[in-house]
Simulated assay, not measured.
Amino acid sequence: MIAAFLILRLRNTLGRRTGHEQEHPRTRLGGLGTKPSEASDERGDNIIDLPARDGVRRDDRPEDDMPPAEDASPLEQGLYAIRKADPNFDRRTFADGARGAYEMIVNAFAAGDRDTLRPLLAEKVFGSFSAAIDAREAAKQTQETTLVGIKQAEIVEAELTDSKVAEVTVKFVSSMISATKDSEGRVIAGDPNDVNTLTEIWTFARDTRSRDPNWELIATRSAH
């Protein structure tokens, strides 16, 4: 299964930026977690505006700006710290955008589309993805993946690092059909007729001091 394979390849991927990553051109993930009205006026046509699912604007939810209680969970404390560093951040919009990020990355990996993956992934993660694609191509194998649906995209961790990098971790539960075929078109792994439920934990990061609205996938891990 493609998702399981990704987890195995990326289990040891480092989870934070080193400060040496290059900023990438804006992509369809630009503004992830940002209200459409607050996205940069300079953004290109490739950026999808991602309104909150319930149609409620952040300004209508004053609880987002209220300091957490002393006994608040690390998640709530982390989200508040990110909001303080980036007033445009909105948790509901981020969760919606993360769904789109998940779908783009899974589909691009299955298709071997490095051009789509490169601006969406941190350098180390892209290297792992690219190596897996290289191995598949060398073996003359193809990956066929259908993302049937995303059942859940829940923010489970949030942190603002000392270097002001926002890191938000999302638990994805998805239904997926995946099969790997050899050069003759024979199925050698997976099942093109079997729908599997997969649970994955992905962490996205963005430097809150940067004007670039892009978030990158910096780590994945198993839910177990």
Rank of each mutant, 00 (worst) to 15 (best):
I2C: 02
A3I: 15
I7F: 02
R11I: 06
R16H: 11
R16D: 09
H20L: 11
Q22S: 14
E23P: 00
H24V: 12
P25N: 01
P25I: 02
G33N: 03
T34W: 13
E38F: 09
A39F: 08
E42F: 15
E42D: 12
R43P: 00
R43Q: 11
I48W: 11
L50Y: 05
P51R: 11
A52F: 04
R57P: 01
R61C: 07
R61E: 07
D64Y: 15
D65F: 12
A69N: 06
G78W: 04
G78D: 03
L79I: 07
L79Y: 02
A85F: 10
P87S: 10
P87N: 08
N88L: 14
D90K: 00
D90M: 03
D90P: 04
T93G: 13
F94G: 02
F94P: 00
G97I: 02
A98E: 07
A98S: 15
A101S: 14
E103P: 00
A108T: 04
A110T: 06
A111P: 01
D113N: 07
L117N: 10
P119K: 02
P119Q: 09
L120K: 11
K124Y: 03
F129S: 01
I133F: 04
A139C: 00
Q143H: 04
T146L: 09
Q152F: 01
Q152Y: 00
L160S: 06
K164M: 04
E167D: 01
T169M: 04
T169Q: 07
T169F: 10
V173G: 07
K181R: 15
D182C: 08
I188C: 14
I188N: 14
N196V: 15
E200G: 05
F204Q: 12
R206Q: 12
R206A: 03
T208V: 13
R209C: 09
S210V: 11
S210Y: 15
R211L: 15
N214L: 10
W215R: 12
I218G: 02
R221D: 00
